[in-house]
Amino acid sequence: MKQLITLNVNNETIEVYTAIHKTLLEVLREDLQLTGTKHGCELGECGACTVLVDGEPVLSCLALPIELEGQAILTVEGLAVDGELHPLQQAFADNGAAQCGYCTPGILLTAKALLDHHPHPSRDEIRQALAGNLCRCTGYAKILDAIEAVRVP
């Protein structure tokens, strides 16, 4: 069954006519062509599809757009503002935190939520916050370094 759904994605109000059983992940990627949000399992077991809903990290593979009307959805495409990279994006680039780059969008958003709530987390607190995002390339080391580079000391 299709339905017209109004979403706020990256500060843009978007109307999308889509099947209600499509997850936010599918709607972002397939209906809105926002392919920056990735998928690794579609079962909530890897963290690759993390987006922010009202500032909190959630898994888009297990969220229904119809339940998110009126909430602010932020994807990786919305992180940079006016062509200016978000400090986390810059730090990930500078620190080599993105190798294949596939888990990167989800990790960036998880990290943004962390720093928005806790501007000066310890390295252990960063580890805790990122424990729901699997990465196979980096051993997490450069990711932790990049977030540390951005945190308020």
């Binding site: 990290p57 898994l59 424990a131 729901g132």
Partner: peptide, 9 residues
């Protein structure tokens, strides 16, 4: 329980 993302949901 699981991960921060899932606990948010």
């Amino acid at each position: 329980v699981s991960t921060a993302q899932l606990r948010n949901m």
